[in-house]
Design a protein around this nucleic acid. Sequence first.
DNA 1: CTGAAAGCGCTAACAA
DNA 2: TTGTTAGCGCTTTCAG
Lengths: 340, 340
Amino acid sequence: MVTIKDVARDAGVSVGTVSNVLNGSRVSEERRLRVEASIQKLGYQVNTLARGLKTHKTDYVVVILPNLTNPFFSLLLAYLEKTLTLYHKQIVLCISDAEKNKELHFIELARRNKIDGVIGITYTNIDDYIDDSMAFVSIDRHFHEGIHVVSADNFEGGKLAAATLYERGSRNLLSFQTLSSLSTEVRKRQQGFEAWCSEHQVSYSCNTFSEDQVKSVYSSYGSQDLIANVLRAYLGSAAENRPKVDGIFASSDHLALAICEEIQKFGLRIPEDVQVIGFDGLRILNQGEPLVSSIEQPVPAIAEAAVDMLLKLLNHENVENVTNLPVRFLEGWSTRPRQA
Amino acid sequence: MVTIKDVARDAGVSVGTVSNVLNGSRVSEERRLRVEASIQKLGYQVNTLARGLKTHKTDYVVVILPNLTNPFFSLLLAYLEKTLTLYHKQIVLCISDAEKNKELHFIELARRNKIDGVIGITYTNIDDYIDDSMAFVSIDRHFHEGIHVVSADNFEGGKLAAATLYERGSRNLLSFQTLSSLSTEVRKRQQGFEAWCSEHQVSYSCNTFSEDQVKSVYSSYGSQDLIANVLRAYLGSAAENRPKVDGIFASSDHLALAICEEIQKFGLRIPEDVQVIGFDGLRILNQGEPLVSSIEQPVPAIAEAAVDMLLKLLNHENVENVTNLPVRFLEGWSTRPRQA
DNA sequence: CTGAAAGCGCTAACAA
DNA sequence: TTGTTAGCGCTTTCAG
């Protein structure tokens, strides 16, 4: 292996000088050229382990995600990668399966490996385990004060969903939500929905599945029975003493799609009988048609804000939380055209 | 930061002894206990940078993928992660956008960082740049002898596609392929298709898009015009002097879906007028209905085989290429039911 | 089995 | 500016 020493010898300078040209410190033009020539000639490459040992820094950023099955996460990962690359940071990928012990394990690993920082969607009060040597930016969560978080404007998204359903003819709305006890940010989706309905005096109901009920907050498949039961109460013939629901807001596209399937099993048509709006804005193969009508999250902006925040943290600058990245309605097959 | 020295002092032993208990070398029971107690007490964690500097090893594996937009890649990544975790390896993620210079950049980075090995879907003769210090396993490619590759049984997949189309009533088949000049493995899909048609004397045509024509081998959206033109020749009224195509095999689900859209624009029905089979076996949200009828790749098995191969390489064991992982037909909406 | 000591390749004082 | 040198925290001889 070619080391800095070999380069120094070859160029006839000291290792300190080589180190200086490597790190852009002041070196006379003449020596810089000599050193660079030797580096080329010998094919020298820095050993980042040795460098990291000295500087207590690496160019790695740990990204913690619950899974990659949900396209929202892979999309987020894609944009995080894109953005971090601009700053010469590399991603160490950690998939937590939304399990606390895995999340903590990754934090420990990150510390051992002298990782610069962590960006993640986590389900643990992970910041209790983060010390000053590591920056942490959370996406879509908000555990408590002092934690740095980036997220879409979930409240506005909930309002937009309600408004859109109403605008397109639904009069009796229902909100479906799967919830992690820790993600107060995501909870705002329903709060926004309720706020809009109250404000406009529109009839609505809410249904919340806890983490225990639904396998994973972000993977609603496999909870069909549960969903069917709830729907029956609101859509079926049993719903005699209350108005029939004709517009549903689901807190994720996953959930929305599962709901759509069940609705169709009841023999109801979407969007003629019932309109459905999800959340996330997923598309077929991530670039085709929307999977369902949805409130689209600004994934690129989220990724950029998260990276930006992390870099500032690394730089010991003060940062403000960013929890209002604008969302928009993504028109799909599960809603009717806008009323004239 | 707590170092091995602190532990040694606290336990009243030498650093060598601490190192030994850390690495499972022979240490007397009594001292081992003392050291472990001190580690607990002080909250010591190894510095993997320092360790790596000595051992020239890390627990990182670089994974190179063209993108994460295509669910096939994120699925593969998910399974690679799952498998590597079993062996206490972590993934450093590299997205190449199928660009050669990025791929090479990542290899260089891997070398700098003393990465143990690389697993990837690459478009470059990357192995020219890999030296003995690094293991490399390629997925779905086969540049030339000496490169270690894992892939599905692409030839059999092509045959299966042809057979299935025929079995379900299509009589004039067409194969559509986007191709990287470097991936001889993927090319086998069409070869298998042709082989089956020849063998069974079934009428067929083939159409191959080069890399230049289609934006990316794995992302066929945005090439609609191109696809439409080709289809017109085979399906439209212009096709007077040859039998009308009524069954299409596409070399990826991306391409298949793009083809389906165009077919429908012609006013033809799928699967009544034309049957379409893709390749990869993608599903809605990775767990719902198939996006199209498809030849499903055994992604978990591919991931496991690749990791297994990498580990063996790291261990300097001899390995054989694995290029025949079994595929199966995934029944979707774009083919008719099996004939009685 | 244990301790002392020599580095791994690099950065960053410090002295010149 | 440049060269010298002392470590960063760890593993690994090598004596004992």
